[in-house]
């Protein structure tokens, strides 16, 4: 089977698991809407729209963390990761398949979150949508690898946000810049640069995270 065929099979496995068990996606959806409602009460009367734009990114990053914490749970609970590592496919395909599945979940959540945000707090412009798409790629690429690291540790869900948030700061900078700046192009370019650099790094180093 070709490399992309392996990736597609692995991603399809995750999507099928999710369709059958419905563990992660409903939780992420409910979480992002609840967070937006909490933000309405966290923003005092008279707070400007720019502040709300920043909070959108907080909501997205934390929702992604919720999904990422569960990303490797099926493999861990049934001890399937060893099997996947031994399978005759390139190990980076495991990472790419998982990142694609996580991206599918996160995009579905954003399809709900962005209209909900527009409904609650005002408009969402094209630059914000582009920023969300680019940042989601980076979140999924880096987050999937870090989640695999965290899955190998005793503390698991506890350590993942600690690993992820410092690496997510540039994404938040790029995303918020794209949302609020009058010239979003350079922020979008920065997000694309981040995606390219970290995707290559994750793709090259995943093998070492899962093997001994």
């Amino acid at each position: 089977m070709s490399y992309l065929g392996d990736v597609a099979t692995l991603a399809r496995k995750d999507l099928r698991l999710e369709l059958r068990a419905r563990d992660t996606l409903p939780a992420m959806l409910l979480f992002v809407v609840s967070t937006l409602v909490v933000f309405h009460f966290a923003l005092p009367e008279g707070a400007d729209e720019v502040a709300a734009q920043g909070l959108l990114w907080v909501a997205l990053v934390f929702t992604a963390l919720l999904g990422l914490a569960r990303a490797w749970a099926p493999e861990r609970e049934s001890g399937a990761l060893e099997g996947l590592v031994l399978a005759p496919c390139d190990r980076s395909a495991i990472w790419l398949g998982k990142a694609a599945a996580v991206f599918a979940f996160l995009s579905s959540v954003e399809l709900v979150a962005l209209p909900a945000f527009a409904l609650f707090f005002g408009s969402v412009d094209a630059a914000t949508v582009a920023g969300v798409v680019l940042a989601s790629i980076g979140i999924c690429a880096v987050g999937t690898l870090l989640a695999a690291m965290a899955a190998a540790s005793r503390t698991r869900e506890l350590v993942l946000p600690l690993l992820f948030l410092p690496l997510a700061i540039p994404l938040v900078v790029g995303g918020v810049g794209a949302s609020v700046s009058s010239e979003p192009a350079r922020y979008l370019a920065f997000l694309a640069l981040y995606d390219a650099i970290f995707s290559i790094l994750c793709w090259a180093s995943f093998e070492y995270v899962v093997s001994e």
Partner: peptide, 9 residues
């Protein structure tokens, strides 16, 4: 990457 991000911010 962070340095660039902070400069942008």
């Amino acid at each position: 990457v962070s340095f660039l991000a902070i400069r942008l911010a």
